[in-house]
Nucleic acid binder design. Structure first.
Lengths: 341, 341
DNA sequence: AACCCAGATGTGAACGCTCACACTACCGAT
DNA sequence: ATCGGTAGTGTGAGCGTTCACATCTGGGTT
């Protein structure tokens, strides 16, 4: 049993011989084609089981020119958002009978993204989903899309590349409006880095809500998504007694902000109201539990894969091929009306 | 240019024709084989570029029987740990010139795991890394390993399946010892679900540290890793004034615990010291910043992939084929000596 | 009785690559 | 002058499938 080299795995011909049919009949059974007698089919299936035969996917791919594989290019799958999207994509892919091959980006620049897509192409993927929420990606995306069917998940809006995204502007709008509706005179903003589309969209929505309410528009503070940058922002906002409401572009920065406010003796939500963005799993146990905007990353992933599969199947996508998912406000304990209403 | 069907992609013969050589010479160039004149090589490379030729990986795989693809089976890649491991795996795989194909587990049972591995096998992966930290996985792993080279990442210790893991026992030991050394009479424990190997290991380390110090061993409280369960544990611990130190089996539960203690008026670290486990990115902005045990998930992923590649290359792994990575204690502000020392 | 047609099965040729080997030129050693 | 060796190149087979087609059955029709 334990020879020097293992016995070669069985091939279709072996199955055919054992079942007493031709290789073609085995193929028919394998591909659920009609016109095979039930009894013959049973015999073939028995042979397959007996030999523990597995079709050789390379051979099949060679002739059908279909690898049954899709690629995912993603920037930092360690983050909650990308990780959840990837998860959604994988599930949807499995349901659609595709394998998924990943390629993560170590840095975010045109060359790196193009290279990742190219690697995937070398592997003969039939299509690619790109998760790259930075502004730089948009251009590269268009270029990459030339060689292979491609859709963006939460990526920049481009005429030619179909994509699925969550409406950042709308999310920021309801978050800011929520604070305004509570009676705050205005709302301060701790923004994400401006080379991220999400950060830009959220800032837009925030500004729009203020302008619609004819509220003054304070200077936004730029962070880098990290709790640490939120903390820094919090320290500077804490010293200004007129600040009663802050909209943070993500929950991590809100966490840092919360701590800075706490240390400065500004109570949340009694003295300052805070709203975040993302709804990461920990937010309900922040002190206080954070009111935030929930993005359904899993859904985003699933929908983007769906879009890709639809395109591969040939059904033309909608008008521009873009899908926009609206986010929801999750009200918890970190925002309430100001003292002096 | 825009005909009904795209022109067929160029094949090796096309390159050969254009370069005025045989297909075999093209193959030699592609595979960096010696015995090709520099000038010939240049001509071939030029032809490749001109045609934008990409080798057909299926054809290559068919004849070499090497897919250059590795599979990763993982339980819930949404969690910080698995996500980071996956990231590390992908990077190491790319460095070793492999593609990685993923297959996530929707549920944790033998059949699901076996099915995921089987799917990957159908895709002709050369080897598989499994991320499945539950106790149930261990048995299934051994069975799955029969059909394909396989290594576990943070999985159950099995004689036959090589694996890489972080030493949970050691981590819990230093965490508990740290609290003991600060002068606490004993340390309470909020444990993870007992069907997780990590939870079992951490409880072991905790118990061992107490026993070594001849400290009383309180009844551990069982949680489910969630902040919510940590909160529940915190509420019950808060009413007991003798509790001065708590070791939480993960940071999320510590977050919930922190909040429960806060609400109950028990100050951390003045009244109660808390130590967590994992060192998720947010911990330094908990209130107070959490002292915790850091696990290098990325390294874990990289090492497990390395182990797999080494096995594929034929070099026998060490004695048992197991690699154990020690974790580190990260001291922040949530633990200090008790009041009445 | 001759016919046809559809269902069930088999045959051989691709698919695009690598492998094993054959071949050619040219070198220095005999 | 002959030989052996080696660098450079070409030839044909074969990897395990699917596809297009050919073949063989066995009922209905006429």
């Amino acid at each position: 049993m334990d020879r020097n080299s293992a016995p070669p795995p069985p091939v279709m011909a072996d199955v055919a011989r054992l079942a007493g049919v031709s290789h073609q009949t085995v193929s028919r059974v394998l591909n659920d084609q009609p016109n095979v007698r039930t009894e013959t089919r049973a015999r073939v299936l028995a042979a397959i089981r007996e030999l523990d035969y597995r079709p050789n996917s390379a051979a099949r791919t060679l002739v059908t020119r279909r690898s049954q594989t899709l690629g995912v290019v993603s920037f930092d799958t360690t983050l909650y958002g990308p990780a959840s999207m990837l998860y959604g994509i994988e599930q949807a892919a499995r349901d659609a009978d595709y394998f998924v091959s990943i390629s993560s980006l170590r840095a975010m620049d045109r060359a790196t993204l193009l290279d990742a897509v190219s690697r995937l192409r070398d592997q003969a993927v039939e299509g690619v989903v790109v998760i790259a929420p930075q502004t730089q990606a948009a251009g590269a995306l268009e270029q990459a899309a030339a060689g292979v069917p491609l859709v963006g998940a939460g990526c920049g809006v481009t005429e030619r590349v179909p994509m699925v995204a969550i409406d950042q502007r709308a999310g920021a709008l309801i978050a800011t409006r929520h604070l305004l509706d509570l009676g705050h005179r205005t709302v301060h903003h701790v923004a994400g880095p401006m080379n991220w589309l999400d950060a830009v969209g959220r800032m837009q929505g925030w500004r729009e809500a203020l302008e619609q309410a004819a509220a003054p528009v304070p200077l936004p503070i730029l962070g880098d998504w990290s709790a640490s940058s939120g903390y820094a922002a919090g320290r500077s906002l804490a010293v200004d007694p007129t600040v009663t409401a802050v909209f943070c572009a993500n929950d991590h920065m809100a966490l840092g902000l919360l701590r800075a406010l706490h240390e400065a003796g500004r109570r949340v939500p009694q003295d300052v109201s805070v709203v975040g963005f993302d709804d990461i799993p920990e937010t309900s146990y922040f002190m206080p539990p954070l009111t935030t905007v929930r993005q359904d990353f899993g859904e985003l992933g699933r929908r983007s894969l769906q879009l890709l599969v639809d395109r591969l199947a040939g059904s033309r996508p909608g008008p521009a091929g873009h899908v926009i998912i609206p986010p929801d406000l999750v009200v918890r304990g970190s925002a309430r009306p100001p003292h002096i209403a």
